[in-house]
Design a binder for these strands. Structure first.
Length: 283
DNA sequence: ACCCACCCCTGGGCGC
DNA sequence: TGCGCCCAGGGGTGGG
């Protein structure tokens, strides 16, 4: 569910809500939530209790909280994960998976995840860049993101532009919503072959990716339903600014042509037939 | 070294 | 009402 803007909203909430605090108790209520912690829930708990959370970091859609031990608590929200900072006496959420209480007795941290595609783990020595995150590329909001390297690598691919945007090892943080929105802005169909995209058009596309991510972040992200919320339970407002995603049959905001929906990679893609003509041989 | 189909889950909405 | 099907913002993995 959440893409870069939504995950960044959560990161900021963690920064305000839990960074600087010392973990008292960890309660893993569903083992699947820590399946990416190979040593198991008990080890996960032991590595966290008594540790202080030093900062809140993000790359793409991955989050991590370096600990004063030099390890890092890592998290990915998957399709439906939430990290909520709530009073300890608030009722258990239906899909509450992990609870963290703190030594200061203040609000607790809860990992809630309906579909359990997300999860948490403690990565040894991962404070700088957890090994489980290192395989993905930097995201376009990272100051060290290399635009020209992205352009070069995109054009070296032999695939479709949308597949490339969704490939987290090329550029991270983009999911189905923002891929469609950036392609609409760039007037490119997602099936356009990457090798046929000129350098200027690739730079233009990257500019639109960066712009739509920033604009969404300013609106608190996109929240179609209560599954995506900040650590404070607040929904984002960017849905009203979407031009393509989820708008099948509605007139294009640029040319009035009804937005089309296509099935692609076993998921939906939305685009304007007028502004984003399908290539002769889509990929 | 790629790339893709498949799998992992729960729940809401819809047609019958 | 109920059932079955489709759909949903994610990534990892094993095979080609």
């Amino acid at each position: 569910m959440p893409e870069l803007p939504e995950v960044e909203v959560v990161r900021r909430g963690l920064e305000r809500g839990v960074v600087g605090r010392t973990v008292a108790e960890v309660d893993v209520r569903h083992p699947r939530a820590v399946r990416r912690h190979p040593a198991g829930a008990e080890d996960f708990r032991a590595l966290l209790e008594g540790r202080t959370l030093v900062s809140a970091e993000r790359r793409g859609k991955y989050l991590w909280l370096p600990l004063d031990s030099g390890d890092a608590l890592t998290g990915h929200l998957g399709m439906s994960g939430q990290l909520l900072v709530v009073p300890g006496d608030s009722p258990a959420q239906t899909h509450l998976r992990v609870r963290f209480t703190f030594a200061d007795g203040g609000r607790e941290l809860r990992f809630v995840d309906q579909r359990t595609f997300g999860g948490l783990a403690v990565v040894a020595g991962g404070a700088e860049l957890p090994s489980t995150v290192a395989h993905i590329a930097r995201d376009p909001l990272d100051p060290a993101f290399d635009d020209e390297e992205f352009v070069r690598r995109l054009r070296a691919r032999t695939t479709g532009v949308k597949r490339a945007l969704l490939d987290q090892t090329l550029v991270s943080g983009i999911g189905n919503i923002y891929a469609d929105e950036a392609l609409w802005r760039a007037r490119l169909h997602g099936g356009r072959p990457t090798e046929g995209v000129t350098r200027p058009r690739a730079r233009d596309l990257l500019g639109h990716v960066r712009a739509v991510l920033k604009e969404s972040l300013e609106q608190g992200g996109t929240s179609f339903d209560a599954l995506y919320v900040s650590t404070e339970g607040v929904s984002g407002l960017f849905e009203r600014s979407l031009h393509a995603y989820g708008r099948e049959g509605e007139p294009c905001d640029r040319c009035g042509t009804p937005i089309r929906r296509e099935v692609f990679m076993n998921r939906s893609s939305f685009s304007c037939p007028g502004c984003q003509p399908r290539p002769r041989v889509p990929r």
